[in-house]
Design a protein around this nucleic acid. Structure first.
Length: 550
RNA sequence: UGGGGCGUCGCCAAGCGGCAAGGCAGCGGGUUUUGAUCCCGCCAUUCGGAGGUUCGAAUCCUCCCGCCCCAGCCA
């Protein structure tokens, strides 16, 4: 699956910067906060940042933006690193942490104080909000705004030394309380938080805010293009203000793109956490979750995800991508890479009354790729077929087995149904059929061709397996607009059943993907599958254009 | 009613003054031992709207309309 690189504003910008000699090397970074698992929106950001670096021969860093220890943890750091690698990317050098720059950031805060550009403010959070004004009214200066440099230094050192309670004081930039851009109304640079940090332990009781940290982190790492999402555009003047006021080692530039939205799913860490905490799903990596770990367990491949992100494009206009586009990318990849096998999910017994002895058939593992080889499949007198593939009578549109009619057993013979057993409820319990001789690889001599092809599994060595079929987690296209998740969650998003697999599938390893012919794509569960107790997750069904009107 | 963005086919999205790419979905037809795949064809005289500049505008200018973001000591 070749992915054409299409033009977008970021590539145009970078190409221009390179051509004009504004930058000599592209350096990007993927900067997640370790407060949850990565989701499809992050996958987009990852492909954008690592992809750009790759395309232009540059580098991309992985940096944890860990400036708010309250919600962060090592667990998330580990999961995120694994996700990035699994997606197929390797970052430059060691993993970076905003927290490893805390010392430098503190010194720069002092520099701002010394140059009269920052002050310690004693206003409470509520008071500060009042002073900030509103969208249409300017704010008022804090009564602490004109403290002397000396006083500010003393107070800020005392904040660091832990002499004040959480929230008692903050360090703020002195910019413009009447700016129409609220981010410039003396934003907070440091706040007091007596929280043990997952990286720095109890070294600090004050932590820098995102605004004061991010640009400087970029400058320290020599980031040339700091790419983020649209909602940070209003922060750019502040980002630039710090870069210009501080003796930073480089001059990074921020660029913003529209975040990825996909219908029938949510891409908000807060909402995903809600799903996990409420027990609506089994965890962050539940196959129904739009997290990278969830999609991995579901059976989506890194290639499919990368291709999807490229196909969707990167622009500055908000939009909602149809989940069908993601599914298309998944099917596309699986169609090419997944070996075929047979499994019967809804078994109905069928006896081949004229089959004398068990035969061994050679079946191709892929209809269009002979390099995937062939496998041997046994055919015995008793086999399983799918209940949906048999009818006592049907119209001409039905291309499966009907009493008195013929179908071909995939990879095997054409058979003809003679009769069937029916129980007291009218349900078919067993089908009897005969093998039409001389039909291995050729049509019947009598000219009566098979109506279609059905899959089957030999009863004599069938492997029993648990099948977990997934449907979309939400019943509505825009679940994020709902006030209450309970209203929009699809209560039947998981269905478990037992299936019979062809014998060769007993050797499937965890995370191996197959197409169970005519059923869909399946993956051996990463955690629960074993040869003794096979467990397969349904990745996605085959495209189905069959109109059920017969 | 302040500031910042965005509006090109049902959904994404190229295009950057020279006469509307591509993908997804959809619709026809062909091939097929998967109702899959594959193949062929169709699918915006028109770019939120109205004016204007120009030989020529989706691309430039003006006004209007619609949608998104910002008032965390979150990121």
């Amino acid at each position: 699956m070749d992915t054409e690189l299409r033009s977008n504003f970021l590539r145009t910008q970078i190409q221009s910067d390179l051509d004009q000699g504004l930058v000599d090397r592209v350096v990007t970074r993927f900067p997640p906060e370790p407060n949850g698992f990565l989701h499809i929106g992050h996958a987009k950001s990852i492909t954008v940042n690592f992809g750009l670096a790759q395309q232009y021969g540059g580098r991309c860093n992985l940096r944890f933006d860990d400036t708010n220890p309250e919600k962060e943890s090592q667990t998330f750091i580990d999961a995120i690193e694994e996700d990035v690698r699994w997606l197929g990317y390797e970052w430059q050098g060691e993993t970076r942490y905003a927290s490893s720059y805390f010392g430098q950031l503190f010194d720069w805060a002092v520099f701002l104080i010394d140059t009269g550009r920052a002050y310690v403010c004693d206003l409470s959070a509520d008071e500060a909000r009042t002073y900030r004004g509103t969208l249409t009214e300017p704010g008022k200066n804090s009564p602490y705004r004109d403290r002397t440099v000396a006083e500010n230094r003393t107070l800020f050192e005392a904040m660091r030394a832990g002499e004040y309670e959480d929230g008692e004081r903050v360090l703020r930039a002195k910019i413009d309380m009447s700016s129409p851009n609220i981010n410039l109304r003396d934003p907070t640079l440091y706040r007091i938080r007596r929280v043990t940090h997952h990286q720095t332990g109890d070294d600090w009781v004050i932590y820098p805010t995102y605004d004061f940290a991010h640009g400087q982190e970029d400058a320290i790492e020599g980031i040339s293009h700091s790419i983020c999402t649209l909602e940070f555009e209003d922060h750019k003047p502040l980002y630039d203000w710090f870069i210009e006021c501080l003796p930073v080692p480089s001059r990074p530039r921020q660029y913003e793109f529209a975040r990825l939205n996909v219908n029938y799913t949510v891409t908000s860490k807060r909402k995903l956490k809600l799903l996990v905490d409420s027990g609506a799903v089994a965890g962050w990596d539940d196959p129904r979750m739009p997290t990278i770990a969830g999609m991995r367990r579901r059976g989506y491949s890194p290639e499919a995800l990368r291709h999807f992100c490229e196909e969707v494009g990167t622009s500055r206009s908000d939009g909602v991508v149809d989940v069908g586009m993601l599914e298309s990318a998944v099917r596309n990849d699986l169609n090419v890479h997944a070996p075929r096998a047979m499994a019967v999910l809804n078994p109905l017994a069928l006896e081949l009354t004229n089959l004398a002895a068990t035969e061994i058939l050679s079946v191709a593992n892929h209809p269009a790729d002979e390099t995937m080889g062939r496998r041997e499949v046994t055919l015995s007198r008793n086999i399983w077929i799918d209940r949906e593939d048999f009818r006592q009578e049907a119209n001409k549109k039905f291309k499966r087995l009907v009493v008195g009619k013929r179908v071909r057993l995939r990879g095997g013979y054409v058979i003809e149904a003679e009769r069937c057993d029916v129980d007291v409820h009218g349900e078919v319990t067993k089908v009897y059929a005969t093998v039409v001789p001389q039909t291995l690889g050729e049509d019947p001599d009598d000219g009566v061709k098979a109506k279609g092809v059905i899959h089957w599994v030999d009863q004599s060595n069938a492997v029993e397996a648990e099948i977990r079929s997934y449907d979309r987690l939400f019943a509505v296209s825009d679940p994020s607009s709902a006030e209450d998740f309970d209203q929009v969650i699809n209560q039947n998003s998981l269905t478990t059943s037992t299936a019979f697999l062809e014998a060769s599938l007993a050797y499937a390893v965890p995370e191996a993907r197959y197409q169970f012919e005519r059923e869909g794509y399946f993956i051996a569960d990463r955690y629960d599958h074993s040869s003794e107790q096979p467990v397969f997750n349904k990745v996605i069904g085959l495209r189905d254009t069959w109109v059920t009107n017969d």
